[in-house]
Amino acid sequence: ARLPRSAVLKKILDSVKDLVKETNWDCNEEGMSMQALDTGRIVLVEVMLREAAFESYACEVPMTLGIDMEPFGKVLRCAGGDEKVTIKASRNDQDHIELVFENEEKERMSAFELKLMDIDGEHMAVPDAEWGAEISMPSSEFKKIVMDLAEIGSDLTIAVSKLGVTFTAQGNNCKGSMVLQPSTAVDKKSEQVAISFTEPLEMTFAAPYMKMITKAAALSSTVTLSLDEACPICVRYEMEDNAGHIKYYLAPKED
């Protein structure tokens, strides 16, 4: 698998490393994907890197690569953001993968080997939900709202109604709420706030987990929040050009 720039992989790692220490990457002809739970079983993260993300991608036989995120992060930090990354896994000796970073103009090449682990990762079945509400908005705006309100209180309530979407945080000595209305004024798609809902709803989540989730804003300029009172929230970041996505499912807090 060859990525034109290591930046995407670095951003993906940054988006999951607080939640997941080690995980299996499933490789098949479609691409590379992973699904992992945090230790508290409160958030599930799914990453899909489709073939379209790669400059070249070949997978003769489906493989599962057990990766420890810590050493993987250390190796990736040796790659310049603009360097090409090639990951090779051999079907003959499946105890390691090779990573090669190439910097074209500087004629520099570095090679690493990463030991693979035997991880009995359990996969969870995530049913396709009919969502009560869906919000798409700039990922940077969602990140700022979450980071700001997380300072106000540890519970983040998201309410959808005809008023728009209201984010509320409640602390011991302060409370704050921010209301976003659907924005049709702006023309740039990535700046728009779109809200659709079948009936008003309100759900509460742990702000510290939502903070970790917003780190994936580096991967996509827009984020989609899908809510339904019977389900965990789905926070989805779609990468450009159908390269793939990162999705988080966060369980709610309930009275």
């Binding site: 508290g40 409160i42 079945a125 009275d255």
Partner: peptide, 14 residues
């Protein structure tokens, strides 16, 4: 305050 639920209340093993 509200009590945190885990994903096991919503998702089963595949």
């Amino acid at each position: 305050g509200a009590k945190q639920v885990t994903l096991d209340a919503f998702f089963g093993p595949r």
